[in-house]
Every structure is written in C-alpha cells, then in structure tokens.
Design a protein around this nucleic acid. Structure first.
Lengths: 207, 207
DNA sequence: ACCTGAACACCGTTCAAGT
DNA sequence: ACCTGAACACCGTTCAAGT
C-alpha cells in the first residue's frame, strides 16, 4: 500500500494522490485503507519514511565535513527520485521517528567533529531543509516550461526587470536563446552546501 | 476582498480560507468572487502581493551587505505578520510580477556591490527562500506545543536520540525543564543570514 | 467482530436558468 | 448582459447497517 502510494506520487504527482484513488488502484473500497492507516496524515508520514529510508548511512572514517557532505548528497539523490517528498516534508508539523533518527546522526557527525552543542544547533538551523537534500526552490521554474512561452515572458518582463533578465540569459548555455534551459540545480545545490560547510569550518576553528 | 482574505488567513490560518467561506464572510454568494478573481490561485497571488508590498524599499547609500541585510530583515518582519505567506509562496509555481520586481532590486543590490552576474546568480540560489525572510523551518515545532506533551515526548525519545535531546535541552533557557520554549527563531535566522553574507563577501574579495 | 456502502460535511468551479 | 442557484465532480472521514 505504501509502495503503491509512493509509486503513484512519483508518477502522477502528489496532488493526484487521494485516499479514494489509491483505494481504487489497489482494488479495494476506500474505507479499507483505514485498516492500515489512521488517516491521510499517517499515510504521508509513511511515504516520507520510505524516502528517508533510502538515504545511505554515514560513511565511516571520514572527517565531519566529508561525512556531512556525502550524507546530504545521498539525501538529495533520494529526494530527486521522489519529487513530491520535499513538499510533503515542508507541510508536516512533526517529524517521524525515522526523520528524527536521521537528524540525530547528522547532529552526531558535527559533535564528533568537535562542534559544541550550541554551535551544532545554530549550524543545523542554517542548513535548514538542505539537510534533507532539497533547497527551497522558490517558484520552481524547472518544471516543464514551453521555451517559447518563457521567451515571450522574458521579452515582456525583460525591460521591467533587467537584473532578472541578466541572470536568466547568463544561465542559458546557448547564447542565442533568450532564456536558457534553466539553472543547473545540482551545481547550485553543491555551491550553497560548500559555502555553508566552509563557513561552519571557519566558525569551528575560531571557537 | 483581498484584505478580508488576508485578515482571515492571519487570524484563522490559511487552511480555513475557502472560496465559499470567504464569500460568506463578505456577505456575497460564492460565485460573486469570480468577478474579481479568475480562480483561487489568483486570489492567493493577490494575497502574496499584499505581503510583498509591505516590504520596505532598499535603503539608499548603504553598502551592498548592509542594504541586503536590512531589506531581508524587513521582508522577514512582513512574513512574520502573515504566517501563512511562506507556505503559500512555496506552493506557487510562478512568481507574481511584484515578487519578480522584489527579486530584481535584490539582484541589483549585489550587482551594484560589484558581484558578477554569475556570482550573483549563485548567491541568490544560496539565499533561497531566506531572501523573502523565511527559513524553511522543517517541522515547525514553534507552534503552540503543550510543554507537558513535549516533555513526555522527549522523555520517550531522548534515549533513542541523544543528540537531538542534547540540543533540545541546551536550547532551553531554564535548566530545570526537560525541553525548552523552543529556539530563538530570530537569532537563528540572523545567524544564518550573517554566515551567508560573510561567505558572499569572501567570494567577492576572491574574485 | 469485522467489513462496507451510503452518507456527511465539505471543496473549487461549471453552467444553465432566471432577471 | 449580468447575476446566481443548483449542480458537478470531487475530497477525507463517520457511521450505521449488513454479514
């Protein structure tokens, strides 16, 4: 049932996942789902745990910086396999025990690296959602946009927003097109992650 | 109508805002709303613009770092006045023209400070949602939690998650209580923001 | 005791009927 | 032409009736 829910969300998007449709897919009556799950919230929790369960454990014998970096990039790979997961995680109020366990080992990596409890606390806040491998892409333009529509939009908005236009055209790999194929999200994610880790290292050395 | 929608979301939460209830509150028939707005998406866009409109313009005559910092903190004050706004902004696919204009001036601050187009691009990705004054608080425990429930939870989970427990108890201002009143979100926000800005400054000097 | 169909209390939006 | 009530196509979940 959890696997069916994850598969459906992967394929058709989280907004297509309703209790009724999931039941239909499984060939059962809607109310049958409530034998396995108290409500939809619990279903979503279970789905999150499937994704978090795919994250590799920390590599042994590495320094804190490398261990944190590799684990976060592993989390990112899991998140990219399940594009709905970041949105669901954001919307939840309470972490599942499995997410808490993930956080706990991540905190442990910092503390083992010599970070004080307080510094680790601040550092975890600074990483924010990136700890789970996603960066709050505000207005995710990465979804399938018609290049012509994008070009028309930029032609219209360009004169009003010259700075946005400058970045949008610079991000394009082909000089010819008005608006490029979007940003290299993986590069941007690692750029930000490394900037953060370097900042943490500096704070650690100062302390 | 927009003001009524914003007021309702401020007061009772975004999940309580439905087209039908908003219409009832305004003393009109549900379909009357569709004279002002094509659909609910457009209503939410309008509500976002109300919030973004409350952000102060950039201060003149300051260096890029100070100008960016002050503007982001102004955005944060606006966001804190409207707790639903961050969630709605996250869920939207496309920015409104007003949000685009905000981004444009923010990009302009970096470029005026000497950042190249490409570096500005990376820097904007690194800031992420913080540019609009909110940090993806994963699992926002800041909401009204019963201290007793939290204490019980920690008592149960503490042994399994010692590192989470260490931070939770350290964050407490009173040593006596098992779990504190949560984190100082404003402090954490500024800590992260300043770490980012310092990192950007270092990149600028290196370039 | 277990299962399940119908029902409840909602949604956002369409559309045809009324003025 | 404008307005609007009813209807449509959904939700998640409750609950009583059936086995």
């Amino acid at each position: 049932m959890l696997r069916a829910a994850v598969a459906r969300a992967d394929k058709a998007g989280i907004e297509s996942l309703s209790m009724r449709r999931l039941a239909e897919e499984l060939g059962v009556v809607p109310m049958a789902l409530y034998k396995h799950v108290a409500n939809k919230e619990e279903l979503l929790d279970g789905m999150i745990d499937v994704v978090v369960g795919e994250i590799d454990p920390p590599v042994a014998g590495a320094g804190w910086k490398s261990a944190v970096r590799q684990r976060i990039l592993s989390a990112r790979r899991a998140l990219l396999r399940h594009p709905w997961a970041s949105q669901v995680m954001e919307s939840k109020q309470n972490p599942t025990p499995l997410v808490l366990a993930y956080m706990d080992t991540m905190i442990g990596l910092f503390r083992a690296g010599g970070f004080s409890v307080n510094l680790t606390h601040h550092v975890m806040h600074t990483i924010g959602s990136r700890v789970l491998g996603f960066s709050q892409e505000l207005f995710n333009d990465s979804s399938t946009i018609d290049p012509e529509v994008a070009a028309a939009m930029m032609r219209e908005l360009g004169p009003k927003f010259p700075n946005v236009l400058a970045i949008a055209t610079a991000a394009s790999h082909e000089e010819a097109s008005v608006v490029g194929p979007g940003c290299d999200d993986q590069y941007e994610f690692e750029f930000a992650l490394d900037l953060l880790l370097d900042g943490f290292e500096r704070l650690l050395q100062r302390a």
